[in-house]
């Protein structure tokens, strides 16, 4: 084990964390403003990846595909909100879970219908191919660094949007008192649709970015969705800041755990079993971290003040 290898894994962890943040930010925003738990968020991630892969294959340009992923995911989000989700705001969480679970079945099977069962592949754009040298001698793919940069940029943009713009002000007002901003003349139904579409676009963007380093296939959103749940539970549901820190914590813990634990286990058990035990423990590590955090702070690290 070298420092360089550890640095590479750390960057991988941050890259995973940044992508998780894009998912978790949408989820936590939708929960904070509308009080809705959306299981179908992973499907919007998948929609983004498929839109990017299909349009990139058709036009030959990753960048047009990326724009298409934003448009497709936001449009899918808006349609779903108008048709289904807005009927669920007044329902209990059980109904929301079931209805969005039903949406997952429809999205997954519908996508399989349109694109078939075989995974699609998305090439990394020429501009971002290649690798850069890390201190210590190893090389790291430019594209993964670009993901980290893009994610950081989106996080900053989201922060500016929410803290500095009129729309952001309305979103914050919607989080603290939805009746009051309705009474002040803000069209709350449109605001909800916009927030949902914004969250969907973030998820679609994440799906498209990750689609270029993994295969684009049905069901790709579900593992990410569950990790994003862990993130927002750790961070405190409704808190964007919590989502960011939770995402980085989960991303780095998961990646470093898978890298380090099998090596640590060699110190305690025979090498033949160390890999298996280390791997098994590493796959559970983030859930163990979550359990510890919840045992200390049941409402997450940054619980919203008003809830």
């Amino acid at each position: 084990m070298t420092i360089a290898l550890a640095l590479e894994q750390l960057l991988n962890g941050i890259q995973l964390g940044v992508m998780l943040f894009l998912m978790a930010a949408g989820l936590t925003l939708i929960f904070g403003v509308m009080g809705l738990i959306n299981l179908a968020h992973g499907s919007l991630y998948m929609v983004g990846a498929f839109a990017c892969a299909a349009v990139a294959a058709w036009t030959g340009s990753f960048w047009i595909g990326l724009v298409a992923s934003l448009v497709a995911a936001a449009a899918a989000g808006a349609i779903v909100e108008l048709a289904v989700i807005r009927r669920l705001y007044d329902r209990d969480h059980l109904d929301q879970v079931l209805a969005t679970f039903a949406l997952i079945l429809m999205f997954s099977e519908g996508t399989r219908w349109l694109f078939g069962s075989f995974p699609l592949y998305l090439d990394i754009p020429p501009l971002l191919q290649g690798a850069v040298a890390l201190p210590g001698g190893t090389e790291y793919p430019v594209y993964r660094l670009a993901i980290i940069a893009a994610g950081a940029l989106v996080a900053f943009g989201l922060y500016m949007l929410i803290s500095r713009t009129r729309l952001g002000m309305r979103i914050r007002a919607g989080e603290s008192d939805r009746e009051m901003i309705g009474a002040l003349g803000v069209d709350i139904r449109t605001l909800y649709t916009v927030v949902f579409a914004l969250g969907a676009a973030l998820a679609g963007f994440a799906g498209a970015m990750v689609g270029a380093i993994q295969s684009v296939q049905v069901g790709m959103g579900e593992p990410v969705l569950i990790l994003a749940f862990v993130v927002i539970v750790i961070g405190g549901i409704g808190s964007i800041k919590g989502a960011l820190l939770g995402a980085l914590l989960v991303g780095v813990t998961d990646t470093m755990g898978r890298f380090l634990l099998p090596k640590l286990m060699v110190l305690f058990v025979p090498p033949a079993q160390a890999g298996a035990i280390g791997g098994a423990v590493a796959s559970m590590l983030i859930y163990i971290v979550m359990a510890i955090i919840l045992a200390v702070k049941p409402r997450g690290l940054f619980p919203p003040a008003h809830a």
């Binding site: 738990i37 969480h93 862990v230 539970v233 098994a280 979550m290």
Partner: peptide, 22 residues
Amino acid sequence: GVYFIMITLAFAQMVYYFAVSW
């Protein structure tokens, strides 16, 4: 509430991943 839903889901995933990687 919604925390309970997500946490029970997460713990079940933990058992799932344990079974997959063991």
